[in-house]
């Protein structure tokens, strides 16, 4: 499925980087305000979908030169690795606190970082899944 129109194409060219930026923003602020990995991933994948519709599959392939499965499973791997890491310190899975010293100034940034990695994993998975599904289905249609 491809919708071609000059206006759409031009606007999409503009919208894509903007919405990707917006997605990054959403994912970063998610811990304190509405947002987070899911929403960011969805925003990004909608942007990709629109791009796909206006420029076609090859263009998207040039933009995202990896198979979506790599995207998904890198994301899932990131989430898994972040969650497993505490096990090595004798803590339960997914524990976001690292180390045993409870100094707020040190532990807070550390913890924040681990959650971001997890959230980025989520983002990648969501992008990969939605882009992957829609790409495959529209490929079928053509």
């Amino acid at each position: 499925m491809m919708v071609s129109s000059i206006i759409l194409r031009t606007s999409v060219r503009l919208i894509l980087p903007l919405s990707l930026l917006f997605a990054c923003f959403m994912s970063l602020k998610g811990h304190n305000e509405p947002g987070g990995g899911f929403i960011a991933g969805l925003v990004a994948s909608i942007a990709f979908c629109i791009y796909r519709m206006s420029f076609g599959a090859e263009a998207l392939l040039r933009l995202l030169p990896v198979h979506p499965r790599v995207l998904i499973f890198t994301g899932l791997g990131m989430a898994a690795v972040t969650s497993i890491a505490p096990l090595l310190f004798g803590l339960p899975l997914l524990t976001s606190r690292v180390g045993t010293i409870r100094v707020p100034l040190v532990s807070e940034p550390f913890h924040y970082a681990s959650a971001v990695v997890f959230d980025t994993g989520v983002l990648l998975v969501v992008v990969g899944v939605s882009v992957g599904m829609i790409m495959r289905l529209s490929e079928e249609l053509e």
């Binding site: 990995g37 499965r69 899932l76 899975l93 959650a115 989520v122 899944v129």
Partner: peptide, 21 residues
Amino acid sequence: LVDFRGFDTLGEITVLSIAAL
């Protein structure tokens, strides 16, 4: 989602990935 019940989230992104597979 990412901490108290982060485990659910780990599960749900797995569901997503499986769906794609």
